[in-house]
Design a protein around this nucleic acid. Structure first.
Lengths: 167, 167
DNA sequence: TTTTATCTATCTAACGTTAGATAGATATTT
DNA sequence: AAATATCTATCTAACGTTAGATAGATAAAA
């Protein structure tokens, strides 16, 4: 069932964004979804495969949302800022790839590669929007940092003021 | 013995900076130090006490290093940038409080409070240096974000280019 | 009837934590 | 000064729990 797979990915994403790679478990995800942990293993044989799938879906959706804004006429930096802001306000949590990147040493190669992809695609897209590479990296880093700080200070307005310079 | 306590804190700091709160264990730390995990528990009865102690020492050292630079005539934003840069280049790892902040949902209150202290002291110190609050938050966020991005892209020059705007 | 998806039941390994014992240093009492 | 008591730091061993993972039965769908 595709519903189950989506529910698994939803739960894993939420949990990774709250507690990182080591902070989520098959049992927790299974309980969220309402199945047994062995059923989660049926769809995702190993933890790193699940995490990699979560990261890939997250990145694809993120890029898709940015593209939609840019397609609608938005300036590329603003589009990135908006999608980050939505991720923070809607879910009240860290960026998935930011949460994973913070502990990149513990990640399996496949997972780290997916996380890296998020950042590389981000830089690429920002460059496509006219920024030079250094500026693209600076914008992406600032957005991740703003999200991190808003997260720990438990104050979403921090994201606003922290990235207002882009306006 | 104070040596053992320092060695425990050193090991725990390195491991948390690489793998986050859930990614380090008493046994790993004990093995690093060359004692049994029960001996680590003798000095730090619970994991959250150890993590809180690590965060406190990290923050105190960090602030001390910044103060030393400012006392030596450095501009406050440059001082913060330098100390972040040193932490990245020397250890090749994420900021401890950044790594913990990224997964703030899983942290015990005492640990989260210590991490929050790092950010609040940082903002305060930057304000003392003449920045308004929004700018202080923006600088600190940018530094954390730059470290995160350098970490996942495995390219320390990313930190340089990402924060060059402050120069 | 084969494939797909779930279950039950289990495994090994590791987790944080605690109990009980001990050797050696330090302090107190006789 | 000697004897007694306490403290410090460590050990071995085990506790109950949870981790990721797997084999095999069962049910549903194609």
């Amino acid at each position: 069932m595709t519903d189950t797979i989506n529910a698994i990915l939803d739960s894993a994403e939420r949990r990774i964004r709250g507690a990182g790679y080591s902070g989520f478990s098959f049992r927790d995800v299974a309980a969220d979804v309402g199945v047994k942990s062995s059923s989660v293993h049926y769809h995702f044989p190993a933890k790193e495969k699940l995490a990699a799938a979560v990261a890939r879906r997250y990145t694809d959706r993120f890029i898709q949302a940015v593209d939609a804004e840019v397609g609608g006429g938005a300036e590329v930096v603003q589009a990135w800022r908006d999608v980050f802001k939505t991720a923070l306000l809607r879910d009240g949590r860290m960026c998935l790839c930011g949460a994973l990147a913070a502990t990149s040493h513990e990640l399996a190669d496949k997972v780290r590669a997916e996380v890296k992809r998020f950042f590389e695609l981000g830089i690429e897209k920002l460059q496509d929007g006219g920024l030079d590479r250094a500026s693209a990296i600076r914008v992406l880093s600032a957005l991740e940092g703003a999200m991190l700080t808003a997260n720990i200070l438990d104050d979403q307005s921090v994201f606003e003021s922290s990235t207002a310079v882009f306006v």
